[in-house]
Design a protein around this nucleic acid. Structure first.
Lengths: 102, 102
DNA sequence: TTGTCATTTTGCCATTTGACCAAATGATAG
DNA sequence: CTATCATTTGGTCAAATGGCAAAATGACAA
């Protein structure tokens, strides 16, 4: 009961960083190699690796080693689709921020 | 695009703390007074208050002042219902943890 | 109005946790 | 062995957490 909510909060926490959320969204299309992430983001190689390990520990992604490269994929592809309410919330937030600028 | 993902990550981050996630789940039934949270959790009044402000800033809850008390409610009640995939993920995680103990 | 109590938020401080880079280590292909 | 791809470790700086005390806010009585 208490343990359950901790594990669940940990899943959300893992998604609660722009770079990690971006990685997860990239994986919506299918698996990707670590090197692809590194090319696209302007941070150190080790930083991406660390973010991937956070996602792994939260159980959001799985890894698959093939040859020299390591490929990551979502453990549950439904993850992003099921968050439509979060998107509604997001749109509210964006509107609010725009209102603040005006 | 980049701003969008930051705001979205912030919503997840807000949900990524056991106490805050617990609060959000309590609000599934409807609005609650701050004092009700404090009674149920063994932390300082100010700690709950701060968690509530994090949820407010993320746009997850709204507040409503009535008399001496302040009532909080979910801005979008769909929030909890739409997270079924997270629950599946959670069950996987729980199973994994149980497996580690055995 | 003035004072007081109850409810909640804020400010300040100490501790912990998280993020990032750089260097070191591990694993695998050629 | 060497080169390549990825993770781990160490150190440093920023952010999050939580407790305590003080400040706001509103209700209510004198």
């Amino acid at each position: 009961m208490k343990e359950r909510i901790k594990v669940k909060a940990n899943i959300f926490k893992a998604l609660g960083h722009p770079t990690r959320l971006w990685i997860v969204e990239q994986l919506a299309d299918g698996e990707k190699c670590v090197c692809e992430f590194v090319e696209a983001v302007d941070v150190d190689f080790s930083t991406i690796s660390k973010h991937l390990s956070v996602l792994r520990n939260a159980g959001i992604v799985d890894m698959d080693k093939r040859g020299k490269q390591i490929f990551y994929r979502l453990t549950l592809p439904c993850l992003l689709n099921s968050l439509s309410c979060i998107d509604t919330l997001l749109n509210h937030q964006i509107q609010k921020q725009i209102a603040l600028i005006d």
